[in-house]
Structure formats: structure tokens, C-alpha cells
């Protein structure tokens, strides 16, 4: 696999080129899940946390974060549970996911946060790490990593 294609441009930014599916722009701290996420039975909309017992992020809150994950799994209640995070004020700030399904697409729309998917070359789940400062532009389909934590 090649490194992040894209313009590791002059500034040293990483840019992932995808397709915006919910418009708008947001910038914030990334929360990266390497595993797919369940809605029903997987998150608690009241607190905005992942509750699936065997999940790598069990107990972690995604509210106000740029949620970077491979995709949705589990019940058809996925979109309704993420919509409930919006209604209860615990939604993520933006979504970036790689595997497009009906659950994840509808979920992003009803969560009403800038969302980018369908990445041509590089995998943002592998290239972004939790804590990175990330800009998600749902209009242009660009996901830009502005500042990153020092790598271990």
C-alpha cells in the first residue's frame, strides 16, 4: 500500500480524497475505530458512548469528535440510534467511513453532520489516528489532517 497519496503537500498536511455525502465543513479532534460500529446494542445515544462489550472503544464517548471508522454493522436500527444522538445532543462532529452501506449512509444523513466516504486510494482508518486534528469537508469530499499527535 502506498502512503497517503495525496498532497502530503507543501505544508505537510495529509489529504484523503473521498466523496461527500452530507454537506458542510467541520474541524475537530479525530476518534478512530478500527472495528465497525453497531448502532442498536452498540451505542448509548443518551451519553454518546460505545457500549458494545467486545469493542475496542467500549466506554469511549464520540460526542463532538470526528468519528473515523470502517462502517456500520448490526441491526437496521443503526440510523435511528445515530439520529437519536443528534436529538439528545451527543452526536459526533463529523463522520468519515470507508465501507458504504444503507445503514451508514442513512445514518450519516439523519445525524446531519458533514460526512465523507468512498475513498479512492488511501484508507483514512489506517492513516488517521485518534487525537489528530482533522477537517472534514462534505462539499468537496476532502478529509484533511492538519495537526497530528507525535507518533509513538
Amino acid at each position: 500500500m502506498s502512503g497517503p497519496t495525496s498532497d502530503v503537500a507543501q505544508s505537510g498536511r495529509l489529504v484523503f480524497r473521498g466523496r461527500g455525502i452530507v454537506p458542510g465543513r467541520a474541524e475537530g479532534e479525530a476518534l478512530v475505530s478500527h472495528e465497525t460500529i453497531s448502532g442498536w446494542g452498540g451505542i448509548d445515544p443518551a451519553t454518546g458512548t460505545i457500549i458494545e462489550r467486545r469493542h475496542e472503544l467500549c466506554g469511549v464517548c464520540f460526542t463532538g469528535k470526528v468519528l473515523v471508522f470502517p462502517g456500520a454493522k448490526g441491526s437496521s436500527g443503526w440510523s435511528g440510534f445515530f439520529q437519536a444522538t443528534r436529538l439528545l445532543g451527543t452526536a459526533p462532529l463529523a463522520m468519515v467511513f470507508t465501507h458504504l452501506t444503507t445503514k451508514a449512509a442513512l445514518g450519516a444523513i439523519v445525524t446531519r453532520v458533514p460526512t465523507v466516504t468512498d475513498f479512492a486510494d488511501d484508507d483514512p482508518v489506517a492513516g488517521i489516528q485518534t487525537g489528530d486534528r482533522v477537517e472534514v469537508d462534505g462539499d468537496t469530499g476532502l478529509v484533511i489532517v492538519h495537526g497530528r499527535l507525535p507518533r509513538a
Partner: peptide, 24 residues
């Protein structure tokens, strides 16, 4: 909706559906 009904409808009945959600 309902993952167990979706897989039954597609596979056993030969109807055609995605796993839809509340809004769709």
C-alpha cells in the same frame, strides 16, 4: 427494516430489499 426479516425476504422469498432504516 429488521435484519432477520430482510435476509429472509431476499434469500428465501426472492424479494428485493436493502436493510432500510426508520427514515427511509
Amino acid at each position: 427494516m429488521e435484519s432477520s426479516a430482510v435476509v429472509y425476504a431476499n434469500s428465501v422469498l426472492g424479494a428485493r430489499t436493502n436493510c432500510e432504516g426508520g427514515a427511509s
